[in-house]
Design a protein around this nucleic acid. Structure first.
Lengths: 187, 187
DNA sequence: GTACGATACGGAGGCCCCCGCCAGTTAGCA
DNA sequence: TGCTAACTGGCGGGGGCCTCCGTATCGTAC
């Protein structure tokens, strides 16, 4: 499959992806595809060919981070304290979502595709997170009716809402803490 | 001030605002200003003159809702149960933010202006909410370190993250409930 | 080493959008 | 009624997204 791709195509793919990472980091989820093409030294049609739609490009840009987070979740599955493991992972996700511009948008928008879409960043993350949540639930450390998808949605929302803050990461972590403890519980 | 405005200017202002409400409801926060002008039967420059920037237009569009929510907060200040009053108000805000397309964006973007900006939708809401939060805090019904701004940010985030969901309102309310109770508390 | 078919490329054109400037027009006042 | 200033709408520039299509390049078979 990948070998049936021509060598120049693979070269361009890599070059575009590298530029896209920089541009998204600099300008967020609505970086200019045109500009990415220009900087990468390819025609705009080539960008569209490799990444049909902004969504696809964002997915590719964040694929590595998603992978890393999935791996982290897997590693945490055997941790001694299920509740702490879950919290740790959520904090890590918050870090990524709050600091990597565009990632929260990518996660939020991915949600409207079919939930079964294996390509979806959100679905992949939810799948990786599920075991952690189940373990925490069995230990009675989370409310019974919370799902992995819920948690990812909440973190995504926090990241989106704090994006325009000064020091978004700190604010996001504060709000995550609030969400975890519950705003309504008595002190 | 408002009387020094010419009659036709006021007419156009009202017409543009009415069209803008429909367009924003239909296409969300990034409705086309050009299109609004066309539908309203005025030049695009006229829209720009009355509402310098998309932000200003969104503020005007949602001003009534903001006003209504502020009034509601004032009315709830004397309610018997401070905790229930706060919850009710948050549910109302969630309703608005989740069903009125673009409102969540408006709130989130408003946050990056100076916090003291009285024109800011978010600031106005926070100001109206403050007494409710204080009363609930005094009654020990909320965690001590939560502020009105925090709560608005959380609801805004939930609305943003559930925007692309089927049935966003239901999902938003579910997540609000989760946030209120705390995801991490044991069942 | 060459010639051929398939594949990928990239520039041009269409369409839309936001923005700022302009002279014309109209409302309100004397 | 006539004047003045505020208000108006159209136009052009700059940019972005998307599609089409002729062309250059790659990989392979001879």
């Amino acid at each position: 499959m990948a070998d049936q791709q021509r060598a120049d195509a693979r070269r361009n793919y890599a070059r575009i992806l590298a530029v896209a990472e920089q541009e998204v980091a600099a300008h967020g989820a609505d970086a200019s595809l045109e500009r990415i093409a220009r900087v990468a030294g390819v025609g705009s049609a080539t960008v569209r060919r490799h990444f049909p739609g902004r969504r696809a490009l964002l997915r590719a840009v964040f694929a590595e981070r998603i992978e890393a987070l999935s791996a982290r979740a897997a590693a945490l599955t055997d941790a001694a304290d299920p509740a702490a493991a879950l919290r740790d992972w959520l904090a890590a996700l918050t870090d990524y979502a709050a600091s990597a511009r565009g990632m929260a948008d990518a996660l939020a928008q991915d949600r409207l595709t079919e939930p079964e879409d294996v390509q979806s960043c959100a679905a992949k993350l939810a799948g990786a997170l599920e075991p952690l949540v189940e373990r925490a639930a069995r230990a009675g450390a989370v409310t019974a009716d919370v799902t992995a998808a819920d948690l990812i949605t909440l973190v995504t929302g926090i990241a989106l809402a704090t994006e325009h803050h000064p020091d978004p990461a700190a604010e996001a972590h504060r709000l995550l803490d609030l969400t975890w403890r519950g705003t309504g519980s008595a002190a």
